[in-house]
Nucleic acid binder design. Structure first.
Length: 110
DNA sequence: ACACTGACCACTG
DNA sequence: CCAGTGGCCAGTG
């Protein structure tokens, strides 16, 4: 596959998400200066299925919904992985999303 | 080359 | 509040 900067940046950033925290596609796209390209973030994540222990499960949509769960090995895998880190999930939605939301724009502060 | 899709998001009426 | 729309752009048929 072609390795673009965007691709690498997204992957780098996702690796930086602390355990027990989550972020959103939009937040990542926004931080990378591609605000309108949040769809691309999802696209990049879809190509990371072959990267062992890549924490793609820490990325959800802006509502805290586990929109990518169907792309994991098991439909419940994403939720399980989050639960292990102490992230509560109910009806495919991160319960305390606002509290544990990790915004690179703030956390990495420029 | 063209049309459509997608792990999305913000804006508009 | 809900539906529609535009923007982004790589992959696929």
């Amino acid at each position: 596959m072609k390795t673009t900067n965007f691709n690498n940046d997204v992957i780098e950033l996702v690796w930086l998400i602390p355990k027990g925290r989550v972020t959103s596609y939009g937040a990542i796209a926004n931080y990378l200066g591609a605000k309108k390209s949040s769809r691309m973030v999802g696209w990049v994540l879809n190509s990371t299925f072959n990267i062992p222990s890549f924490p793609a499960y820490r990325v959800v949509n802006r509502f805290g919904l586990l929109s990518g769960k169907s792309h994991f090995s098991s439909i419940t895998k994403m939720e399980e992985l989050l639960l292990i880190e102490g992230v509560e999930v109910e009806n495919d939605i991160v319960v305390n999303f606002k509290e544990i939301f990790w915004d690179p724009m703030i956390e990495l502060k420029l």
